[in-house]
């Protein structure tokens, strides 16, 4: 059996020890998979990915990136090991130019490869290539998300995690973001996507995982989940208890 790109084992995490938000999640993503994490507000989706990225205290459990244990690694070391994270908000440096945002992220690459990698990213995001000297704070919402994704891709991560990349974007721009994520995944990058935009996210994902109250409650192929009444019920806050994991 091949080693997953990323996995968690009984992960418990949160901002206060007595009040864990993620409560014992076992979760794994295969190499090259695009997995969407869904769930109602307060389910622990963002806390889960922040804990994986090293931004939230982990109280117990383990996180593995490939076969390496990265549970206690600080956020900046996880990037060096191939894990890139795009937060929902404040995901670019607004006082730096577009090019400086990419340069800052490229610092961890070998000097001789930085320029080439930035050129590759500009080729992937021509909208950014057109305005390298613009302060990032002056970009539109969609351009900011593209810069945040480009910034994360600079290090050629093995796993890219995004927390609600379509939040606050118009439907057209959000569709562009999803299209871009799909094409990035098709290059072999494993993607974990937290989204409230269930339909659009499931449309590009291979698999969906549903969290409720900090626990994994349901998962399945994206195409199946898209037509699953349980998904709708969970989002509509129905009272019927969801089935056990793996149902």
């Amino acid at each position: 059996m091949s080693v997953p790109a990323l996995s968690t084992d009984a992960l418990v995490a949160g901002y206060e020890r007595d009040l864990p938000i993620v409560r014992g999640i076992d979760f794994s993503v295969g190499i090259g998979e695009l997995v969407v994490v869904l769930g109602p507000n307060g389910a622990g989706k963002s806390t889960l990915v922040k804990a994986i990225a090293g931004l939230v205290t982990i109280h117990s459990g383990a996180i593995r990136l490939g076969d390496r244990d990265i549970t206690s690694a600080p956020a900046h070391e996880k990037v060096h090991q191939g894990l890139a994270f795009v937060p929902q908000t404040e995901n670019i440096f607004t006082t730096l130019t577009v090019h400086e945002n990419l340069l800052v992220a490229a610092n961890i690459l070998a000097k001789e490869t930085r320029s080439r990698r930035i050129s590759e990213l500009y080729a992937l995001f021509p909208d950014l290539a057109a305005r390298p000297s613009l302060k990032a704070g002056q970009l539109s919402g969609g351009q900011r998300q593209m810069l945040a994704v480009a910034r994360a891709l600079i290090v050629a991560p093995s796993v890219l995690i995004l927390d609600e990349p379509s939040a606050g974007l118009s439907p057209k721009v959000a569709a562009d973001v999803f299209r871009t994520l799909k094409s990035i995944n098709e290059t072999g990058v494993t993607i974990i996507l937290v989204e409230q935009n269930v339909k659009a996210a499931l449309a590009i994902a291979h698999r969906g995982v549903i969290l409720v109250d900090g626990k994994r409650r349901h998962e399945g192929p994206a195409a199946t989940l898209a037509g699953d009444p349980i998904v709708a019920e969970l989002y509509l806050g129905a009272h019927r208890a969801p089935p056990a994991v793996g149902a």
Partner: peptide, 24 residues
Amino acid sequence: SATGRSMRAVSENQQLAGIVGIDV
């Protein structure tokens, strides 16, 4: 310089600086 850009990045957002690989 790379160090200077990292300093400006940390000055704006320490958490984000960490997740772009800067040792804050």
